[in-house]
Structure formats: structure tokens, C-alpha cells
């Protein structure tokens, strides 16, 4: 029964968010067009690079584009939710309007205002994935594909949990824009390149700073494209599940503690 209630709230949120996006049609359509142009430019950029080289540490043009679009999907879907703007709700006091509603606060933060643009961007990414796979005739076997896909889905929380922790820090510190900016810059710079181009020091450093970089931004694409043995994928899945359970539990506790410390600014 509760799940039905939450499902109803989600449907209404989706409708309201969709109408909001359509209210600014010019913005909505232009951002989709620009996103498509951006994909074209990325395609051209790497084509120019690969006119000078044939392979980049074992990755061809098609492989690289597949990696980029695959990495985009997960992050874009995360951008659909309102979690990214949580610190702003806290520092402006707008979180108050969510706290006086009889539904789970985190649910309301995440799903009361959705980014419809990001849904369309994610759809574009998925279409481009299929296009790149077909156009470049990327060879994918069934087992590595399944292992890579499962790892990709299970490891997404690992990548976004640090963002959620930092957003929750705003309950204690107020402005956490700085930390968010630093983590964001790291993820968005690295996601366009296979980890194998870095030297060992940076691979280990990035993997420690965020295990999601290794387990989500590199391993799934590498396994799907046959660059790495799928057995590593199975280990990755186990590690992701373990990290996810611990991470989500700790986040839940931290969030509840943060709510207790909230001072209702503004």
C-alpha cells in the first residue's frame, strides 16, 4: 500500500516536471539540439585524433566512443534526480517545504523535482551506444556483455554515493559547493578516458578516492568490449555489492543524523 502511495507521488512529480520543461520549450528543445551537436563534435574530435594514431593503449575509436557514451548514461540518470541540488535546498532553507510533508524526506528531495532534460540526454546516450556499436562493428560476446552490464548497474551507486555524502555534509557545514565541485571535476574529467591511459599511481589514487571510477567508469566497458577477462567482472560485482550495502547503510544513517542537525536556514 505504501509503495502504491509513493508510486502515485512519483507519477505526479514526473508530470509536473515534464510540464515545467515544456513551459520553457525553447530551452528544452535547444538543449537537446546542443547535446546532439556536442555528441557530433565529440565524434569528430576523436576521429581527428585517430587520424593521427590507430590505437590508444589498446582502445580504438569505436571503443573510446562506446566508453564515453556508456559512462554518460549512468551519470545522466543520476542528474535526473534532485539529489544533486540537495545542498542548495539546505542552505536556502527550502528543505523546510519538504520536511512538512508526510513522505520520506530523501524520496521527496530525490524525486519531487525531476530533470526531464536529463532523461532525454540519457535516451540520446543509449541510442548513440547502439549506433557506435553497430557503426564500428564492435565485437561483443554474450557472457562478457551480461557481466559488464550487471557490473555497470550495480556499481553506479558507488560512483554517486560520494556526491550524496557531500550533499548531506551541507547539514553540518552549510556550503559544500567546494567539495562537490572538486569531486565533480574529477569524475567528469576522467569519465571520457579509459583508466588504462593513466600510470599505476593515478589508477590506484583514483580508485581509492572513488572505487566507482574503477568499477563503474572503466571495468564494465572494458569487459563488454573484451579488453578484460569477465572473471574480473565477477569480482567487481561482488566488490560493488559489498561496497553498495555498506555505503548505502552508512549514507542512510548519516542522512538521518544530518536531518537532526538541520538548522533550517533562511
Amino acid at each position: 500500500m505504501q509503495s502504491e502511495q509513493y508510486w502515485r507521488v512519483f507519477k505526479k512529480s514526473l508530470k509536473a516536471s515534464f510540464l515545467t520543461a515544456l513551459e520553457y520549450r525553447a530551452d528544452f528543445y535547444s538543449s537537446i539540439i546542443i547535446q546532439i551537436i556536442y555528441f557530433i563534435i565529440q565524434f569528430l574530435f576523436f576521429s581527428i585524433i585517430f587520424s593521427h594514431i590507430t590505437i590508444l593503449k589498446g582502445w580504438g575509436l569505436g571503443d573510446l566512443l562506446f566508453l564515453i557514451f556508456l559512462n554518460d548514461v549512468g551519470l545522466t540518470l543520476f542528474e535526473v534526480t534532485g539529489i544533486r541540488g540537495m545542498y542548495y535546498l539546505v542552505i536556502t532553507g527550502q528543505l523546510n517545504t519538504k520536511l512538512v510533508k508526510p513522505k520520506d524526506t530523501f524520496f521527496l528531495i530525490a524525486l519531487e523535482e525531476l530533470s526531464i532534460n536529463s532523461i532525454f540526454f540519457a535516451i540520446c546516450d543509449i541510442i548513440l551506444l547502439f549506433f557506435v556499436a553497430t557503426y564500428f562493428s564492435l565485437s561483443m560476446s554474450f557472457l562478457p556483455f551480461i557481466v559488464g552490464l550487471i557490473l555497470y548497474v550495480i556499481s553506479l551507486p558507488l560512483l554517486v554515493l560520494p556526491i550524496m555524502f557531500i550533499e548531506t555534509l551541507s547539514f553540518f557545514w552549510g556550503e559544500t559547493e567546494g567539495l562537490l565541485g572538486i569531486y565533480h571535476s574529477m569524475i567528469f574529467s576522467i569519465k571520457e578516458y579509459p583508466l588504462s591511459i593513466f600510470n599505476k599511481f593515478f589508477i590506484i589514487l583514483f580508485s581509492i578516492l572513488s572505487p566507482g571510477i574503477l568499477l563503474h567508469l572503466f571495468l564494465p566497458a572494458a569487459i563488454i568490449l573484451g579488453k578484460i577477462d569477465p572473471v574480473w567482472g565477477l569480482w567487481g560485482i561482488l566488490a560493488s555489492i559489498a561496497f553498495d550495502i555498506i555505503g548505502i547503510y552508512l549514507f542512510y544513517k548519516f542522512f538521518k543524523y544530518g536531518l537532526k542537525k538541520y538548522e533550517g536556514y533562511g
Partner: peptide, 12 residues
């Protein structure tokens, strides 16, 4: 109307 309908959903 849409925001209020959402409120109605939140309050069941």
C-alpha cells in the same frame, strides 16, 4: 493545479 495535485498525492 499541478502542484496541488502533487500535494494531494503526497497526502494520500
Amino acid at each position: 493545479i499541478y502542484s496541488i495535485e502533487l500535494q494531494a498525492a503526497i497526502y494520500d
